[in-house]
Design a protein around this nucleic acid. Structure first.
Lengths: 214, 214
DNA sequence: CTTACATGTTACTTGCGGTAACCGTAGCCT
DNA sequence: AGGCTACGGTTACCGCAAGTAACATGTAAG
């Protein structure tokens, strides 16, 4: 096991890997989340088994692809979160960054959000959420870190931050998903509405006078 | 086209349909969301084509199954939302109802959340979120109705209520999903943390003194 | 020249969603 | 009776996509 050649070969393998991921990206962009391994291989100018040699199975390819996009998105989100501004502004900037991203590449977004699992026969374990934590989990964890790091939440702050991280990310995701499908308002309006929600406007609002059932 | 026999036959068909749904429920409970049509048919004591005669395709079965559970869950949620209590209490009761439900039947919950689409060849349209709006969408819409009906949000109330409905449901879902997987705290703690978030504690909290980067 | 290894291919298996074509039995009509 | 349709059901199949085995080829080292 001399390492001199190994690195050389590994470099080549890594380059191939990156090329394959680019191709996969393109075909997912074009065909949506139902992209088949055959199609991806064809786009890359090769055939299926090579994909499997590189990524193990479709989950592996998915994971690698997801990591790329997640890393990119998380970079942008972190930048928005760490900007030197009021918290409200930062929150709005972060929401807007996320929404702009999913608006710009809805196909990729769909692909990332729906692992579309379904092990053919090997249905091992399956402890509910134990596997396939694609993008939301990582975003939730990262947001939790930022919250814990920058917001003073008292003794139980750590736990609170994690709950909030996942909760806020879920809010963003669900609202964004719905918004992408129906386009009921402009992006800034959506951002403002969500920020208002996070800012406690639900608690501050008064009860409505008379309902339809009175 | 005499309707006398028609109703009779329709009753029989409806009973069969219900039996099939019960069977599907059982097998989903047992095998998780990857339950195959074959397995479901076998559990029902029949074969595939009959399922297809009743439900059209897998999406149809999914929709029928989802409707059952969604209706049940929404009933419980509405009851919690409409209880004669302070808004904060109602919100906490609603959150707890949802979390208790997913805690009690994680398999079904997983099935409902992941339509696992993927049109084999007929990739018609696919306008991102245009089709397959399974459980979250309905919950979001219902919650939006309740919010709009009971909370005074001023002129843009309707739009705000819809955004919030979907956003809050997404928050609940994501936090619940993460919590189910990791069990980092008790259910009441989670409920309280989420309610605190909705109550604007994020806005009220102060900045933390010194960060790691200073 | 041969060995060893990485790269790539063709051709296959398995399993699933979905469908076509067939089979038996109940009823009802002439 | 005998034959007709209508309905509940089955077997056997198609197409497709994931994943794999076995075979081909180029190329550097001994």
């Amino acid at each position: 096991m001399d390492t001199t050649q190994r690195t050389d070969q590994q470099r080549s393998a890594d380059r191939r890997r990156r090329e394959l991921l680019e191709a996969a990206d393109r075909v997912v962009l074009r065909d949506g989340p139902g992209a088949s391994m055959n199609a991806i291989a064809a786009e890359a100018g090769i055939t299926k088994p090579i994909l499997y040699r590189h990524f193990g199975d479709k989950g592996g390819l998915y994971a690698a692809l997801a990591k790329r996009h997640t890393d990119a998105l998380l970079g942008a989100l972190r930048a928005a979160l760490d900007a030197p501004a009021e918290r409200r502004e930062r929150v709005e900037a972060t929401l807007d960054t996320y929404l702009a991203a999913i608006e710009a590449r809805p196909q990729v977004y769909r692909f990332l959000m729906h692992p579309s699992e379904g092990g053919p026969q090997g249905d091992r374990g399956f402890d509910v959420g134990a596997y396939s934590f694609p993008l939301l989990r990582r975003m939730g964890e990262e947001l939790a870190d930022v919250i814990e790091e920058r917001v003073d939440l008292g003794p139980d702050g750590q736990q609170l931050a994690r709950v909030w991280g996942h909760g806020i990310v879920g809010m963003m995701h669900a609202a964004g998903d719905w918004w992408l499908g129906e386009r009921p308002c402009s992006r800034p309006e959506l951002v403002r509405a969500l920020a208002d929600l996070l800012w406690g406007r639900l608690a501050a609002a008064g009860d409505k006078a008379g309902g339809p059932s009175f």
